[in-house]
């Protein structure tokens, strides 16, 4: 594997650790993600995969080691945190859309407040992204009128409206009814094909096979295995990975 230059590095995590009180949630995480790379993170629940990606935009604070995002060090400097959050989008398991606003208002809020974009411009852009996630007709609706799959696609559009360079996905399909999973994955596949840098925590192994450049397996707060999907799914080195894959792919 060639070592990417600083310019090409989107995220570099070195020796990162995280504690909840005395519980060691993340142990010595090392991860480098190049621009345009798609990473899928999997592992049993409680393995720290969500916590890890939440550290990348400082929804969780790491206690040791360093995180560099797009060349900016993530530390207590609020300016740095704001800068990184502007460039890193995130999609949550439970969508976390703002229920007191319409779909369109959800999408234009951050561009207008954070990027100081005029409303007309922001709305035009929001409509473009809503079209991209295939729900342009829902713009003036409130969330209660939307299905889970539609809500998650709105959430993706909302993140994209900030025109981020990196997208984090935290189990984006885990809260969805089975028939709605593919409509969300389709949007993610399109996004990947356009060259977005993506770090996805997901149990969708089909998506991992199809899209990921690298699959990362985590267990008990550690990165256990890291490999391209074709190798990961056929010849995983660690026993823990093999056991997990047997459980996930078993049926």
């Amino acid at each position: 594997m060639t070592v990417p230059t600083t310019q090409e590095i989107a995220v570099r995590v070195e020796g990162m650790s995280k504690y909840y009180g005395t519980f060691h949630a993340l142990r010595d995480i090392n991860l480098t993600v190049a621009r345009g790379e798609k990473i899928v993170v999997c592992g049993p629940s409680g393995s720290g995969k969500s916590t890890m990606i939440r550290c990348i935009n400082r929804l969780e604070e790491h206690n040791a080691g360093s995180i560099m995002v797009l060349g900016t060090e993530l530390n207590d400097d609020v300016g740095n945190i704001d800068e990184i959050r502007r460039e890193v989008g995130m999609v949550f398991q439970h969508f976390n859309l703002f229920p007191h606003m319409t779909v369109l208002e959800n999408c234009v809020l951050a561009p207008m407040l954070v990027r100081k974009m005029p409303r007309v411009e922001a709305e035009a852009m929001a409509r473009r992204y809503l079209e991209k996630v295939r729900i342009p007709e829902q713009a003036s609706k409130y969330l209660g009128q939307l299905s889970g799959g539609q809500q998650q696609r709105v959430a993706i559009a909302r993140s994209l409206c900030m025109q981020p360079q990196i997208m984090l996905f935290d189990e984006p399909t885990s809260a969805l009814d089975p028939e709605m999973i593919s409509e969300v994955l389709d949007v993610m596949v399109t996004l990947a094909s356009e060259g977005m840098t993506m770090i996805c925590v997901t149990h969708e192994m089909g998506f991992a096979r199809r899209v990921a450049d690298r699959v990362i397996f985590m267990d008990a707060g550690e990165i256990v295995e890291e490999a391209p999907p074709e190798i990961f799914f056929t010849s995983a080195k660690s026993e823990r990975t093999q056991l997990f894959l047997a459980q996930v792919l078993g049926h």
Binding site: L59, G89, M90, H94
Partner: peptide, 14 residues
């Protein structure tokens, strides 16, 4: 819900 504020943070809102 806690997720509301997290989503707002993730979008870079002050």
């Amino acid at each position: 819900p806690r997720g509301q504020e997290e989503a707002a943070m993730a979008l870079g809102l002050s």
